[in-house]
């Protein structure tokens, strides 16, 4: 545990000392700010129209404002996750510092966990930044906080799974760009696998659909805590980290 913390600290340090973390935070903040503004504007306009037509204010803040916003965060995350994980192992392999890590009395798994936790922490910081926007909503409306919290939990779980996949891919190459591009491609594929169910109902389509990240995001975005989907994310995290461990091991046998 101590070793995991040592690696975590080192990774956090390099995220925050280089402008990477600030750049990601700023970009995400800006993009989300834009979403928020557009969504809020639309929400207010639509609400006003409804009122003119003599209908009472039937819209639910959670349904009409928060849910689409969380869906937007989910999609934006897809673009940011490769940027967070691409350097994790690729950079150590390129610069030779991997030799320091693998010849120190620390287990591979501790290195992997430290790095993955750091990536998750950075992503959590980004989510926290978006959550600040919702403070306004709470000030002027009366949203239900529970679905919002569950929505965020879903976002974090989903990011955890994709970050684990990204960590694995980063351990396969010395080249950050390749790591980032492949991570993006893989995450995107996992994202769209679900589409096959629109025209196919065979078993393999269902398997693909089960593998798809999107399938499992729905309930969380709706504010429903779904054990089944949580299990999916947690197992995806396990698979990602397990593959990273195998890859670190084979790196030694091959290199």
């Amino acid at each position: 545990m101590r070793n995991v913390l040592i690696i975590w600290r080192k990774e956090m340090h390099s995220y925050f000392v280089s402008p990477v973390a600030y750049l990601l935070l700023a970009m995400f903040g800006f993009i989300f700010g834009f979403f928020f503004w557009v969504q809020l504007e639309g929400f207010v306009k639509y609400g006003a129209e409804m009122m003119q037509r003599g209908q009472s204010f039937p819209m639910n803040v959670n349904e009409s404002l928060i849910r689409p916003l969380l869906a937007n965060v989910r999609v934006t995350g897809l673009f940011f996750i490769p940027l967070i994980t691409m350097r994790l192992f690729a950079e150590e392999k390129r610069s030779g510092t991997i030799e320091l890590l693998t010849t120190s009395p620390i287990r591979d798994l501790e290195v992997i966990l430290g790095k993955w936790f750091a990536a998750v922490t950075l992503y959590a910081c980004i989510l926290l930044l978006t959550a600040l926007n919702f403070v306004f909503v709470f000030k002027y409306g009366q949203p239900d906080w529970k679905p919002l919290a569950i929505g965020y939990l879903g976002l974090l779980l989903q990011a955890g799974a994709m970050l684990a996949i990204g960590t694995f891919i980063s351990s396969l190459t010395k080249n950050q760009i390749i790591a980032g591009a492949v991570t993006f491609a893989v995450c995107l594929l996992l994202w769209v696998f679900e589409w096959v169910t629109e025209f196919e109902t065979s078993t393999w389509a269902q398997v693909l659909s089960y593998m798809s990240i999107t399938t499992h995001a729905e309930s969380f975005t709706k504010g429903l805590l779904s054990l089944k989907d949580a299990v999916y994310y947690v197992s995806a995290i396990f698979v990602g980290l397990f593959l990273t461990a195998r890859s670190m091991e084979s790196l030694r046998w091959r290199s």
């Binding site: 280089s18 610069s95 510092t97 030799e99 320091l100 010849t103």
Partner: peptide, 11 residues
């Protein structure tokens, strides 16, 4: 162990 290239983190 001192590897061929010093394993330092530039940042």
């Amino acid at each position: 162990y001192l590897p061929e290239t010093p394993p330092v983190y530039p940042e």
